[in-house]
């Protein structure tokens, strides 16, 4: 009930109730500054969470989707082993399709390293079979075992050897981003609790006078709550705007796996940082309200 009416007051404003507590210069400035700084950090943590989330998704997607078989064998046996490998793949549950890469495709893959004029037919370059998995995936160990028996030149590279740790690292970074957001919110709550406590102490005499003339605790608390909530909202709005601008002017994303330059928001993700000042205001509202009511209960 009274929380709802408090929130109503916050929106509509009750200037009269506000005036009973004098403006407190230094806690005001500190709260504005700290909320701004926290919001700035929060937006970066959010961007980190989104960027690493995208990265983890992409790598996990790649993991799930494809694998490669490299096949090297003495000249005469290559075609026979490829046939054997394709037969095995056709019989393996979880393999959606398997396709032998053409010479041209392989040349294109190697071009960045060896130049476009590589005479592939003269070099002992392994042939590649590209495997696309079904959602369920296949049993890599079982497949390796069968390949070893029937196509001894084939080596299954399921990419996981190098990609899985990266995907895990990306997922963990995303978790860290989310944890950072929580910590920033908690630190902001703690900071505002301290600032509100300082403001209450500084105004102890005024609080005594208000009690003397019949003010209820919620009335007194409200004057402080409104003040700190508006300050936190204003400070964090500025911090959020600054961080969003900073992220917007980061150099555009480079290569596919480039992580640092991928830091930022895409499309609708840009809506998320706008929630930062709102969350900051909610944190400030509750931190001040709880601190004030707890403090007031200790006074006569």
């Amino acid at each position: 009930m009274s929380v709802i009416s408090d929130i109503g007051d916050l929106m509509l404003g009750d200037a009269r109730a506000d005036r009973v507590v004098p403006p407190t210069g230094f806690t005001a400035t500190l709260t504005l500054f700290a909320s701004g700084a926290m919001a700035f950090l929060a937006v970066f943590a959010l961007a980190l969470a989104f960027a690493t989330g995208r990265l983890a998704e992409r790598w996990e997607g790649a993991l799930a989707q494809s694998a490669t078989i490299r096949l090297s064998a003495p000249d005469g046996e290559v075609e026979a082993q490829i046939e054997a490998a394709l037969t095995i793949l056709g019989q393996t549950p979880g393999v959606a399709s398997a396709r032998v890469m053409s010479q041209a495709e392989q040349a294109a893959l190697l071009a960045p390293w060896f130049g476009p004029d590589l005479p592939l037919d003269l070099l002992p370059v392994p042939r590649l079979i590209e495997i696309t998995e079904t959602g369920a995936g296949f049993d890599a160990e079982g497949l390796r075992f069968r390949l070893a028996g029937e196509a001894p030149g084939a080596v299954l590279d399921d990419h996981s050897r190098w990609r899985r740790p990266l995907a895990e690292a990306a997922a963990r970074l995303r978790t860290l981003g989310v944890v950072s957001l929580g910590l920033i919110g908690g630190a902001m709550g703690a900071m505002i609790t301290l600032a509100a406590g300082a403001a209450l102490s500084a105004n102890a005499q005024i609080i005594g006078t208000l009690r003397l003339v019949g003010a209820r605790d919620v009335f007194i608390a409200r004057a402080f709550v409104r003040r700190f909530t508006l300050r936190a909202a204003a400070g964090s709005a500025v911090g959020t705007a600054a961080a969003m601008a900073a992220i917007a002017v980061l150099p555009p994303a480079g290569g596919e796996t480039s992580f640092l330059t991928g830091l930022g928001f895409r499309g609708l993700e840009w809506v998320w940082p706008l929630a930062v000042p709102v969350v900051a205001a909610i944190v400030a509202f509750w931190a001040t309200r709880l601190a004030a009511l707890a403090r007031l209960r200790t006074l006569p």
Partner: peptide
């Protein structure tokens, strides 16, 4: 026990304000 930052008329009206 006045609120020194408010003019006298507002101090006198204070009980009305705190009572809503």
């Amino acid at each position: 026990q006045f609120l020194d930052h408010l003019p006298i008329v507002e101090n006198i009206a204070l009980p009305l304000v705190v009572a809503g």
